[in-house]
Simulated assay, not measured.
Amino acid sequence: MAWAWYRAGTVSVTANSDAVTGAGGTQWAAGNVKAGDAFIGPDGKIYEIEAVASDTSIKLRTDYQGTTASGQQYAMAPFAPMTQAVYSKLVELLNQLAGELNVGSVKIGGAATEVALAVLGDVSLEADDSGNQITTLSRNSVSRAALLMLATAMAPRARVGLVNDDTDNLHIEVSTDGSTWTPALSLRNADGVIVVHQGIEDELGNPIGGGGDQPIAPGDIEGAATNTTSILGKLAADGTKAMRELDLAALQQALGTIVGRNLTISTSDPSGGADGDLWFKVT
């Protein structure tokens, strides 16, 4: 029912009867009146409406105490507490959204330790009228976290963002149990340096470098073996992509394995060998 009084039409009442009949355009069953609302009869007393049978018929919870009369003025108004009315409206809204949202897969509110909003299925974020789409995860202080959590069957396995380490550094961490986290990479907020926490391996599991919370910097690969047979070269000290060191024996062995031929890399002129062998003269 609307929040205003409803007075359309007239009523007929009978002494000691719980039946009320409407006329002259009453529309009680059209959402204007519901069980629990108040009915003020021609006798001026307030009665509770027990049921709405039709637009022209209602039943009172108690018998009408006035005299029998017809064509009389009356009034009806909501009598339920406001909280009940709000709850009813919320249920109605959720029912209306049921065709678009899977009601039950969305949780809104809850205790601080609960999920504030959980949506099942794919989620798309579209740009606003300006053409931008900016999503912000904010924390209250550096002792708190702002993270994107990645999970398998709701079990956290990786996270990216700002952890509660009293810094503004960006972290990438992994976990096998969702409670203990192993740092992999971090990006220092102060200077943009990438720090490798666990080292780097090639696809065969051979260590390349990194580890020990030290950054990979021009001039070396931190943590790599000093023996260049384990790697073919190191980054140039001046930060260019040129190789500072090159182990010819390691390169010869690697290329020979790839091409399936005997391969020689030497500063000398080609000599010996058989058909199909490869010889590279380095000057």
Results as ranks from 00 to 15, higher is better:
A53F: 07
G161P: 03
A242M: 11
F79G: 01
G205N: 06
I208D: 03
K107N: 13
L120I: 13
G66Q: 08
G24K: 01
T176A: 14
I216G: 03
I231P: 00
A51D: 15
V119K: 11
T83A: 10
P81G: 09
F39K: 04
G239I: 06
P156T: 04
T83H: 12
D177V: 09
N140D: 05
S124V: 15
G205M: 04
L150K: 04
A23E: 11
G223R: 01
Q253H: 11
T264V: 15
S230I: 00
E92I: 03
F79L: 13
E126A: 10
G239Q: 06
V142A: 14
N102Y: 13
A237G: 15
A85S: 15
T26D: 04
I58N: 01
A29N: 13
Q73A: 15
L150T: 08
A224K: 04
V13G: 03
T136L: 06
H197G: 00
L93A: 15
V119F: 08
A236E: 06
V163W: 06
G223Y: 02
Q72M: 15
T67N: 13
L147T: 08
T135C: 00
W181C: 06
V193D: 11
A116I: 03
T176Y: 08
N140L: 02
L125W: 04
A38V: 08
A51N: 11
V174H: 00
S141M: 06
D202K: 10
P270K: 05
N262R: 14
M1V: 12
V52I: 07
I221G: 03
G178D: 02
G9W: 06
T14V: 12
Q65E: 10
V103R: 13
A75P: 02
R61D: 05
G25E: 01
T14K: 06
T56S: 14
A2F: 03
L251P: 05
Y74N: 10
G9R: 01
V86D: 05
N227V: 03
A8F: 01
P270V: 09
S124G: 00
S179D: 10
V106R: 12
N189D: 13
V91L: 10
M1P: 14
A145V: 03
I172A: 09
G233C: 04
P156H: 02
R139W: 12
G71K: 04
D247N: 14
D129Q: 10
D247L: 06
T267E: 07
D213Y: 05
G24W: 09
D168I: 04
D129G: 09
